[in-house]
Design a protein around this nucleic acid. Structure first.
Lengths: 225, 225
DNA sequence: GGTAAAATTTTGGTATACCAGATTTGAAGA
DNA sequence: TCTTCAAATCTGGTATACCAAAATTTTACC
């Protein structure tokens, strides 16, 4: 996964480290240390940090070390609310503009997810789920929407991962994927909005459960700012 | 307007130059030249360019000079469609969560716009219109939404400016502002969505007119990529 | 022993230097 | 005059050096 520019490659690696948890939420990201650790100079590392900041994974502070973002529950829910609006729009537009091939490809993705569901690693399934949603957005043929949606998918990576990890909701996810694809195939705007709403509603519920458990365990999960 | 960091200050100046038209759409922004022109080094200029790129005002090209964005009509309409979704959401949330003081402040803004409408410069009215919309978004109490909305307001600056310049639509704008505020005051979600939709629909119509005229005049207005 | 102040270190912000790919220019040959 | 190809240069990407503000540690005084 070598990117076009060094900064992008570093951003890619840093992103993975953050999302894997190697860099804990709230931890400072010092330019020098990280640059040295990855064997590059500060300049591209600095730019990589800005890239991640724009994605919302890193929080910039004036005259202080950037820190790995550690959004509170309400912040995450606010973000999901925006993601929800974006996906509703993409669903509507996709019903209008998607080609039959695109819809078929989305269906294939859904089947693929279904087929590997039992055995595969959570992370693999999760990656596919992301591609499923991105494919719908791509089928809306709206570049601005795709970009903004991608940004929210990235910044909600951790939350979505926490949600996907919950075993209870897994078969529900499969059902919802099927319903979303069916709505798209029949180009039923009302139905696809309903299903996307349910999908994200389930995600909110999972996240809330996670935070509740975390709080019971005595942990924090909030940040100051 | 001295910002926290040099890069932000440069971004602010660059943004103004682009929006004022001193830097024409499609024009390349060379790091060295611009840095020298503003009397700074390339490093913060480079970062400023990235900031504007993330806002959509500048387009980055691998191994080439960044250029001032010159979106096509369809790209602008795509962006307005996303802005529309964001404002619908903000209207809905504002109806739920806005405080009475916030609603009053929005009403005051509306009155202010109305009062200066005849005399004031287009640009002043335009600035106030932007604050009107931003105030509604702020009243939604959703930080992520406010940030993304602000980003779209920035990248659609030029298009919105072109729209606001059309004299025909001016009193219509006033009526729509009044209707939006009234819907918010009565916390009528359905009504506010309808009115916001009309508001943005008018904007699309204005932009389309502008492009039509520009094309008749023999100009381009499209970009390659 | 505790607190305050000063010196040291750490860190982000900025400037400058260097490099490689891309573009342009111009000279040579048809 | 037009084409072609190579040298000069233009430009973004990266590395390094320097600076000032913060944070940290040390030291001096109560």
């Amino acid at each position: 996964m070598t990117e076009d520019t060094l900064a992008e490659a570093i951003a890619y690696e840093l992103r993975r480290e953050i999302l894997r948890g190697n860099l804990a939420p709230g931890a400072p990201i010092k330019e020098r240390d990280n640059a040295e650790r990855q064997g590059v100079s500060r300049t591209p590392m600095r730019e990589a940090i800005r890239i991640l900041a724009k994605e919302g994974l890193v929080q910039l502070r004036p005259l202080r070390s950037p820190v790995v973002a550690n959004p509170s529950l309400t912040e995450i829910i606010d973000q999901i609310r925006v993601l929800h609006a974006l996906e509703m729009l993409s669903g509507e537009l996709a019903c209008e503009k998607a080609t039959d091939q695109e819809i078929a490809a989305i269906g294939a993705l859904k089947d693929h997810i279904e087929s590997i569901y039992g055995e595969a690693d959570t992370l693999d399934v999760f990656e596919l789920d992301m591609r499923f949603h991105s494919a719908i957005v791509a089928a809306s043929h709206n570049a601005a929407l795709a970009q903004t949606h991608g940004s929210y998918m990235a910044r909600l990576w951790r939350a979505r991962y926490l949600s996907a990890r919950r075993k209870l909701s897994r078969e529900r996810v499969l059902r919802q994927h099927k319903a979303i694809h069916a709505a798209l195939a029949s180009r039923d705007i009302g139905a696809i909005k309903t299903e996307i709403g349910a999908h994200l509603g389930a995600m909110v519920a999972n996240i809330e459960d996670h935070f509740r458990e975390e709080m019971d365990a005595g942990n924090d999960g909030q940040d100051g700012s």
